[in-house]
Simulated scan of single mutants.
Amino acid sequence: MKTSRRLEQALIKLYNAFHNNKLNPEDCTACAVGNILDNHDSWKHLSNEHGSLELSYVGRVHQNLGRKFNGYSPQEILQIEKVFLEACGFKTPLCHYNSKPLNPRSKEVLFNGLSAVIALLCKLDNTTNIMDYSKLFEQDNGEPTYHLDTFLN
C-alpha cells in the first residue's frame, strides 16, 4: 500500500514509541502528537486547553498561514491529540477533576489510543485504515475471500 510521507513517518514514530515504552498520554512530549512532532512540546500552544479542538490565537495564526508540523496542520494536530486521549480513557479537555484511566501507561490503554490515532491518520490521508483486519475474515460461499501467504520452515 502506498502511503504519504507524513503518514509513514508518523506510523514509524508511533510504532517505535509504543514498543520502546516512550508513549505516555500524560506527557505532551511523549503522547501521540509529542512523538509525531519529534518529542517537542511547542505544539501545546496551538490550543489553550489540552485535548480541545479549539485553536488558540497562536494556533489560528499558524492555521491561517497554512503552516504544517511534520506534515500536519494545527487543526489536525489537535484532532490527533483529542482522539488519542479519549481512546486512552481520558475525558477531554484535560482537567484535574475530569476522569482518566486507572493505569494510563498500560499497554492495553496505549494500544487503544494508538489504534484510534492510526485510524484517524489514515482517514486524514484518505487511505484505508492499516489496522483494519476485518477483510481477513470475509468469506465467499464459506471460503476466505482473501488469503494470507504463509511461509513455514
Rank of each mutant, 00 (worst) to 15 (best):
A116L: 05
F111D: 08
I130E: 03
E143Y: 05
N98M: 14
N103M: 06
S99N: 11
L120A: 08
F84W: 14
C122Y: 05
H96E: 11
L120M: 09
K123C: 08
P93N: 10
Y97F: 14
L114S: 00
L124H: 07
S115V: 02
A87L: 02
L102E: 15
P101D: 07
N129A: 06
Y133Q: 05
I130L: 13
G142M: 07
A116K: 08
L94Y: 01
I130C: 12
G142P: 02
S106W: 09
K135Y: 13
M131D: 06
R105A: 02
K100L: 03
F90H: 05
N112I: 02
Y133V: 11
T92G: 04
L94A: 04
E143W: 06
E138H: 12
N98A: 13
P104A: 02
T127Q: 14
K91C: 10
T127G: 07
S99D: 15
M131P: 01
K91G: 05
K135A: 04
L110H: 05
C88M: 06
T128E: 14
Q139L: 13
F137K: 12
Y133P: 01
N98G: 06
E143N: 10
S134T: 12
C95I: 01
N129Y: 01
Q139W: 02
S106F: 04
K100W: 03
P104V: 07
V109Q: 00
G113P: 05
P101M: 09
A87D: 04
L110A: 06
P144I: 03
F90A: 01
K135Q: 07
C88V: 03
D132P: 04
C88W: 00
L94E: 08
A87H: 03
K123L: 11
A116G: 12
